[in-house]
Design a protein around this nucleic acid. Structure first.
Lengths: 126, 126
DNA sequence: TTAACGTACAACCATCCGGTTGTATATCTG
DNA sequence: CAGATATACAACCGGATGGTTGTACGTTAA
């Protein structure tokens, strides 16, 4: 679990990534920790909720692989993980590509290009 | 709500988009409906759950703007919406860019470029 | 006009989620 | 050592989620 090097994502992993991103506080934590390492306390101070609540958010992000915690004495430095973010990007790219290919097929069809599949309309110009 | 033309997304909208994507069945529905319009019944037949359950999934996708329902007689044709997908992509791109800029700053710092901010190490070569 | 079909929607239920408070543990500081 | 700080973690609670079944309604087909 949490293998950063794997390119194939299980449904569960993808679930966790998108679920983790589906919360404004957590997205903000990702944003901050992508540009600087911050302790959990420092993060907690930034939000109108308890330390424990922020701790949970960080935990959700961590088990999604979006964030990594580094021990530094008694504190934990939270750092965003661009790799996982990139995986999510790739996912969305694939959907986009899927849609684009459909449009290409339609275009080919309209252009009478046989490579786009046999036209269903026999009335099309030869 | 659900304004496809707006380029700025509220936290709530983003929440709904990622939340909607955080489920394998819903992602599959998006995948299918991006390349072809399908009725809710046809979709329901593809999954091991009740019609009502699939109906709910479609509803979640619809209120996230990821899918659109077109009435066609007594059936509803579900079609994926690439625009909303693109918005999510843009979001992730911004995070990625944030991280990239941080790296650029670090690079500039290491290169002794004063535009990257004043080097903290006075031992750096002049 | 019935009957079948496709959909909508309400009610219900178990589980999950996001928050809280409280307690325990490790580390730093005086 | 004692005390303060940073974190971890469990228990609890209300509301959201994801599933179910049942009922109602508009549309198509016989």
């Amino acid at each position: 679990m949490g293998d950063d090097t794997s390119l194939t994502l299980s449904d569960d992993e993808v679930d966790r990534i998108f679920r983790a991103l589906a919360d404004a506080t957590r997205r903000d934590i990702v944003r901050r920790t992508l540009t600087e390492e911050i302790t959990v306390s420092a993060l907690a101070a930034a939000y109108e909720m308890s330390f424990a609540a922020v701790q949970k958010h960080v935990s959700v992000l961590e088990s999604a692989g979006l964030v990594h915690k580094n021990r530094h004495g008694r504190e934990r430095l939270v750092r965003g993980n661009p790799d996982t973010l990139r995986k999510a990007q790739l996912l969305l790219d694939q959907y986009e590509e899927l849609w684009r290919r459909r449009i290409d097929r339609l275009d080919a069809l309209l252009a009478g290009d046989p490579a786009g599949g046999p036209p269903a309309d026999p009335a099309a110009p030869a």
